[in-house]
């Protein structure tokens, strides 16, 4: 028996080694290196000659905290996460409820249609939305003009650029969470609703006291994945606004990209990346904690 278990262990590791080795070398090691890098002054000179590399302690982090541009990027990223995330989750849930409603016919058709933007290439649809947002020829302003709204310079107006990017991101993403919500809804036993109906509970009370609580774990999963994804916003501002106007759509990842891969300030960029990591970690813990405190 011990021999059997021993050979099991050997075979298991043989199957695991390729994946673990690849992840260790190309993911976990770089994470560790990024941490170390964030305490050095790695720049374009060090890129050519590693002897130029110096340990600088916390100075990258201090520099970040003193940089107005970093605070702008942080604020923009939070704007995107705090407004875009919940908006996307609520719309996903609404779409899931509609598609899954017993009265809706052809749910498969609606599901597929709402899901289509998810499988599209972000860069390509960001290009498309750039034109849809055109203040003069764009379809969106034309549609709004039909209901009497004056033209908006979506991507050119500092106050509208971030909402425009959020709108596009929600359009692109809501179908994904919708599918997960539909799966969650279908897992709720029908008998519960029947029992509630017999007790005289209306649609709202059924939603409030059956659907929402039983959807709890799905909700947590969706909220977490959405938050983690939204913190990493990059391609939308890169393609649609390059971070403008007046840096109002500059995200942390875009800042990291510019600092690290355009100006080769890799120590400084690593520090920015780690701040992002800590924020995501803190957001995740906060959500898990809030959920645990809630009576289920």
């Amino acid at each position: 028996m011990t021999c059997r278990l021993h050979s099991q262990t050997l075979s298991a590791w043989a199957f695991l080694v390729p994946a673990l080795l690849l992840m260790a070398v190309f993911f976990f090691l770089p994470i560790l290196a990024a941490f170390l890098l964030s305490f050095t002054d790695f720049d374009i000179y060090a890129l050519g000659d590693l002897d130029r590399l110096r340990f600088v302690g916390l100075s990258n982090y201090l520099q970040l905290l003193q940089s107005p541009l970093f605070w702008t990027a942080l604020g923009n990223t939070f704007y995107f996460v705090i407004v875009g995330g919940p908006l996307s989750v609520v719309i996903s849930l609404g779409a899931a409820l509609l598609v899954n409603a017993p009265l809706t016919r052809f749910p498969g058709f609606f599901r597929t249609a709402f899901f289509l933007p998810v499988v599209t290439t972000l860069v390509a649809v960001a290009v498309v939305w750039r034109y849809l947002y055109h203040p003069r020829y764009g379809l969106l302003n034309y549609g709004l003009s039909l209901i009497g709204v004056d033209p908006i310079d979506w991507l050119g107006d500092p106050d509208w650029a971030m909402p425009a990017i959020i709108l596009m991101a929600v359009w692109k993403n809501f179908g994904f969470n919708m599918i997960i919500f539909i799966a969650g809804l279908q897992n709720i036993p029908m008998q519960l609703y029947e029992a509630a109906r017999i007790d005289g509970a209306g649609a709202w009370r059924q939603f409030r006291y059956i659907t929402l609580p039983l959807l709890g774990p799905t909700f947590l999963f969706v909220a977490l994945m959405t938050m983690i994804g939204y913190f990493q916003v990059f391609a939308e501002p890169y393609v649609m606004t390059q971070g403008g106007p007046a840096n109002r759509t500059l995200s942390i990842v875009l800042l990291m990209y510019e600092e690290g891969f355009r100006w080769w300030n890799m120590g400084y960029a690593s520090a920015a990346a780690f701040v992002l990591f800590v924020l995501i970690l803190a957001g995740t813990m906060l959500q898990l904690k809030l959920r645990r405190r809630e009576p289920s």
């Binding site: 262990t9 770089p30 990024a34 990291m256 890799m266 960029a269 780690f274 990591f277």
Partner: peptide
């Protein structure tokens, strides 16, 4: 397969899902 540390290893991998890929990009 059953081997020592399997579940802990698997859970550590899952926990690593919260690490944003961008953190690894500069050293990578």
């Amino acid at each position: 397969f059953h081997f020592r540390g399997r579940d802990r290893l698997f859970q550590s991998l899952l926990a690593a899902l919260v690490i944003p890929a961008q953190v690894a990009m500069l050293p990578l």
